[in-house]
Design a protein around this nucleic acid. Structure first.
Lengths: 198, 198
DNA sequence: CCTACCGATCGGTAGG
DNA sequence: CCTACCGATCGGTAGG
């Protein structure tokens, strides 16, 4: 019985690989153009597929957008949150998350997917907005959980402040090119964790 | 010699008034849909004009976008920056600017124009991006100037932190509805100004 | 995964 | 400020 590479992979797996490649590029494209600017035609042209061939992987534009948000959330978890779990709980892990965030906006030249899409959808009720909101809530909850571990008195407030300076650093860097903002954000975290117990 | 109201106003003034009405709605629309979602057809339908009648006030879509950014900058100056000049220089004026910012995002239901458009254009080089960047630079410079008046050691850093929590409050409120973020932002400003000289 | 379409809407123009 | 258009592109479908 012959098993070529393609047979061993199988048609289902090949379809899944194509879908993953589409979504990987969709996250990059949406980080630059937004989720509305993410058009099926543009995506298909970039990937050298026909529009309908690409579209067959998704039932609708909205399904493509939802799958793109899910792929972006998974990427964020894998690149920013997961590696930080190697650092000790509390302040060191918070620093690791902030550094992971800065690394990931350097790694993906389109910048932060959430910075590009959250303002775009805050006025468009529906499942796409809900998925974006849930992903950002999860990021704030991760920050707050570690703040609690670090002995912070008001973890929600703390998480808001870290979120604010980190997202603002992304926004300001992209618009003005000023790199000082990364140190400003690091220093805010240092100040917020300076007088913690233990 | 008869002077009806329309004759007294004159054709130039009437054209200018129409243009101002278009731009006022354009700023509202772009605060919700972004500057790409701001389409000539949608704008004309809302204002019960023909597309070409509206388009005649501008030479191109880009000119409409640039005029909309200028109108938004003027509105921001009039509603947020100008009224704060009534407060004494330094910390009181900084508080007045932050409160003016919060008032203006309550006043215009679409939220902050700059929050909706700055991330949209940070990856699209051209005059529209440049105009947005200049307006945000002016806002940061206004904050930094007042910080300097208040005796802050590093005004640029200070301005970044205030900008960060104020924009993040807008973003979080629009996405999660959590009103605590406004007090978080106010408290950051209070903390930053608490130990200033004089 | 493809070719070949569809109606709707985009920015923009001609001519008045 | 209007009607009547234009080519291009949008999301989506038929049929294979």
């Amino acid at each position: 019985m012959s098993t070529t590479a393609e047979q061993a992979v199988g048609p289902d797996r090949k379809g899944a690989a194509t879908r993953a490649a589409i979504l990987d590029h969709a996250v990059d494209l949406a980080s630059v153009e937004g989720l509305e600017g993410l058009t099926i035609g543009r995506l298909a042209a970039d990937l050298k597929m026909s529009k309908s061939g690409l579209f067959a992987h998704f039932g609708s534009k909205q399904d493509l957008q939802l799958a793109t948000v899910a792929a972006a959330a998974e990427r964020f978890r894998a690149v920013v949150v997961e590696p930080a779990l190697a650092a000790p709980r509390g302040a060191p892990r918070l620093r690791a998350m902030v550094e992971g965030y800065f690394d990931h906006i350097e790694l993906y030249s389109g910048g932060c997917f959430w910075g590009a899409t959250s303002a775009e959808y805050d006025d468009r009720p529906g499942p796409v907005r809900d998925a974006i909101a849930a992903a950002l809530d999860a990021w704030l909850a991760a920050l707050a959980g570690n703040a609690r571990d670090a002995g912070v008195a008001d973890p929600d407030r703390f998480a808001f402040e870290v979120y604010a300076v980190v997202m603002a650093a992304n926004a300001r860097f992209r618009l003005s090119g000023d790199r000082r903002v990364f140190d400003y954000a690091r220093d805010v975290l240092a100040r917020l964790t300076a007088e913690l117990p233990a």
